[in-house]
Nucleic acid binder design. Structure first.
Lengths: 150, 150
DNA sequence: CAAAAATAGTTCAACTATTTAACTATTAAA
DNA sequence: TTTAATAGTTAAATAGTTGAACTATTTTTG
């Protein structure tokens, strides 16, 4: 690929990626739940998927400091969506899991989210969306490797 | 597309999009300039590209409140990268432009950004990256329309 | 034309997210 | 058994955000 073409691609990528992220985040907050921030939603979603996990794991996955996780988790605990349980064998460890209320909230919200994302996905062909997500996943792997080699 | 396939695509999209965003933002802050946040960088980049613009325009484009723009612009003004100029004809309007220092910073940084993004882009085929960005741009247009109809 | 409405931007209070450093408690290693 | 390392929290500082109230200007309109 020649330099000129690369520069054009970079410009297009930079112009679009940040704005899409912002608008998608606003959409979630707006349409899904006024009281839930984007970060809190993705945190909750990750914990739900993993069933249980620790602050350290979340900090590593989300690429933030452990104290940032503590702060956000405090808010989710205050809302009654997350509970903390100490490991009886290694009493330093605290497990984070969804409460019953958290599970209910998640199931209810997941329907809304799916409807919202589905209405977007429908505007693309199956082939288009499949290759988009594949590239996204490849990008995620590359960024992950990059992070690990530093 | 049948329901099952759609749900899988949604799961994959949600799993990957937030993390990529986070990691890309961290990368910019880390590799490019410790003192520049991701938001500030994209704000500066937009102003640079438009040559000059107003808070109202930025608020609309970035999908945030005008007072958020004021706050961020204050920080960029404090850093000496952005200057405010009042419109002489309509004295309510304030134009935001890059200072000389802002321009220098941008040119210097753009080289680093390009190198960084290029090293990522090189891991993809031209066809792959082209169709990825096209889909991204289409998504941006759809989100924009969605916002306007609300 | 003067009062009312609209527009551009700022300020302020409240909140969320984040980092860094210092800290507690616990476990593992020397 | 002292020393390291690990897991997590707390506290202070900074950034980003919203919404409401505000100032200063046009624009509209009765």
């Amino acid at each position: 690929m020649q330099r000129e073409k690369i520069n054009v691609l970079i410009e297009r990528y930079l112009s679009v990626s940040f704005l899409v992220t912002k608008k998608a985040a606003a959409l979630v907050k707006c349409e899904i739940d006024e009281d839930m921030t984007n970060d809190q939603y993705y945190l909750l979603r990750y914990v739900k998927k993993r069933e249980t996990c620790t602050s350290t794991e979340l900090a590593s996955v989300f690429g933030v400091n452990k104290s940032a996780i503590t702060a956000m988790m405090n808010r989710l605990v205050d809302k009654g969506l997350i509970q903390r349980t100490r490991d009886e064998n290694d009493r330093r460890v605290v497990y984070l899991t969804l409460t019953e209320k958290g599970n209910e909230w998640f199931v209810k919200t997941e329907e809304k989210i799916h409807k919202l994302v589905e209405s977007l996905i429908m505007k693309f062909s199956e082939q288009e969306i499949e290759s988009f997500i594949q590239t996204y996943e490849k990008l995620a792997r590359i960024l992950q490797e990059l992070e690990e080699t530093q």
